[in-house]
Design a protein around this nucleic acid. Structure first.
Lengths: 328, 328
DNA sequence: CTGAAAGCGCTTACAG
DNA sequence: CTGAAAGCGCTTACAG
């Protein structure tokens, strides 16, 4: 059964004890230069590679981060995935990727994460029932909700400043002279859609104006269909605030189909600043989510918690940036 | 140090031996119904979960698949990632996600995969030097190149029928009356771009026609810039065959910017059939890559190799489908 | 700084 | 079918 080279083999060749071999590969352990050299030489010759499973078994910790994602269709998320992978890699952590279809992550989806005793977990774009989340706490596995807040929860979350972004966007549109605006929401049970709307609504109301709200689902098709439906049944507003970019592109394509001029007849503002927003076919005004900073916040927290678990709950918000293009 | 429940704890509570507990959780082992029930009841009460690391240590195998990806910017790849994750999940395998920036995967990128002794590896959209690939063979870890062929290699690869797709596209354009066509390539060192061009070229030559070739890079920006440059310096061809969809969208946006009518003045054909191709702003004619079937081929091969490693090399090709829309 | 030894939580021949 | 025991490849007190 034994097929691979182990520390014992290396020890024999190097003429040292197995413990010494182990110490060479264990960060923080003390070994003399001479021993280290002998071990490394022998290891090189034999092609030795420490067995991660034996390590994890004994240290009870891993260098694996569980990353749970939903809806990879939105180009925002591949970016997030890439950033996390790159960022964790710097610290020697690998990514166990879990994809879920449902808005609320199911127990079976995260069973794997517990089985592999991951060092930390990032949940993007999805929520999970509190008692599932609690099972991570019970195992002292730090957990971050990325781009989602759980209401009434005591878990750490990292988001963009959705509320003030919503406010800023309303201020901007009103300053541009819009009086009858509309909000096209994402999935209504998401904190992101709710907060963007809330901030928007607040400012609109302050100015004694109203806005219509249309419910959609964060997808291109959703934005497209919602807009077509609006055009069939009622007058267009002077501006759409759309809960994310990919939907906003659908909105624009629907308007284009009916030959409505943007921004002359209708203004459109999205959210995220995905790559496509700057494509000449769209040139979408939007609110940029600072992915890099958001990822950094998440990684920093997780690394700290891995060293000394506290289970602190906090709802971190990172400031985004308004990006003005040609749709407003 | 001992914080979690182990098989011994369960054994004690259930009044059986630790071996029996192990057998309940080890597929294929024989246990009586009575024992199983006692064990499961005790495990439930204690919240027992078998330690994957101890398992892997002893069996010398894992339920982890290494998935190496490059260029998640192209929406084709998130789809691939999702499919693989879903497909492997059915068989109890998890995905260790590795992202690489370079066309050729570096040793350090795959160090992790060897350290975790993954059960199998999928490399998408990238190549690796043969001696890096050989280190997987040395460890009897099955490996598939997905959507890439390695020339002169003896590794398994799964691709779309790029060559015949290129031919079919040339036939189609010629039948439509195109005489002066152009091919916009992806990164020239990729087998996919080469084969699509080769098939295309073959048929064009058979018809005693010529085509121009422009070199690009598989990105939206590449397609956009390449097309702008063409328009500045020379006459437009009557049709573009573009090596992938995301570039083709860039081509279309460049044409749109100069108010060139598609397909009236220029026809455009892409490759992949990504979601955006069907957007009203584009309605791109393209060649659909059968992701599902390609993933299935890959998974089937890997699962078989995990049971009985042979290291068979084969270049599997899965048939794609021509999708006609409004750009031709 | 180094080595011998215990032990992490499992699987798996081996007896019974 | 079940249990006692060996062993997977490491880390880590404990002596020296």
């Amino acid at each position: 059964m034994k097929s691979t080279i182990n520390a014992k083999d290396v020890a024999k060749l190097a003429g040292v004890s197995q413990s010494s071999v182990s110490r060479v590969y264990f960060e923080g352990a003390k070994v003399s230069k001479k021993t280290r050299q002998k071990v490394l030489a022998a290891a090189e010759e034999l092609g030795y590679r420490p067995n991660e499973f034996a390590r994890s078994l004994i240290t009870n910790r891993t260098k694996i981060i569980g990353l749970v994602m939903k809806g990879v269709q939105n180009p925002f998320y591949p970016q997030v995935l890439t950033q996390f992978t790159a960022s964790f890699k710097k610290f020697g952590y690998s990514i166990l990727f879990v994809h879920t279809n449902s808005d609320e992550i199911q127990t079976e989806d995260i069973e794997t994460l517990l089985n592999y005793n991951v060092a930390g977990v990032v949940i993007t774009d999805a929520t999970m029932s509190l008692n599932v989340a609690e099972s991570f706490r019970a195992n002292q596995i730090p957990l971050v909700f990325f781009n989602r807040k759980l209401s009434r929860s005591n878990f750490y979350s990292v988001c963009c400043n959705n509320l003030s972004a919503g406010r800023a966007i309303a201020e901007y549109l009103i300053a541009k002279g819009s009086k009858d605006m509309a909000y096209i929401s994402g999935n209504e049970n998401t904190s992101t859609s709710q907060e963007r709307e809330e901030g928007f609504s607040e400012v609109v109301t302050q100015h004694n104006l109203n806005f219509k709200k249309y419910s959609s689902d964060y997808t291109y098709e959703g934005g497209y269909k919602t807009t077509l439906a609006i055009m069939e049944e009622e007058a267009l507003p002077s501006a759409f605030f759309v809960a994310n970019d990919i939907m906003a592109l659908g909105v624009m394509d629907a308007l284009r189909k009916k030959e409505i001029q943007v921004p002359a007849q209708v203004k459109v503002i999205g959210f995220d600043n995905i790559g496509m927003s700057s494509w000449p076919a769209y040139e979408l005004t939007t609110w940029e989510q600072p992915i890099e900073k958001m990822v950094e916040e998440t990684v920093t927290y997780l690394l700290a918690e891995m060293i000394d678990y506290t289970g602190t709950a906090e709802a971190v918000e990172v400031d985004g940036v308004f990006v003005e293009r040609k749709t407003t």
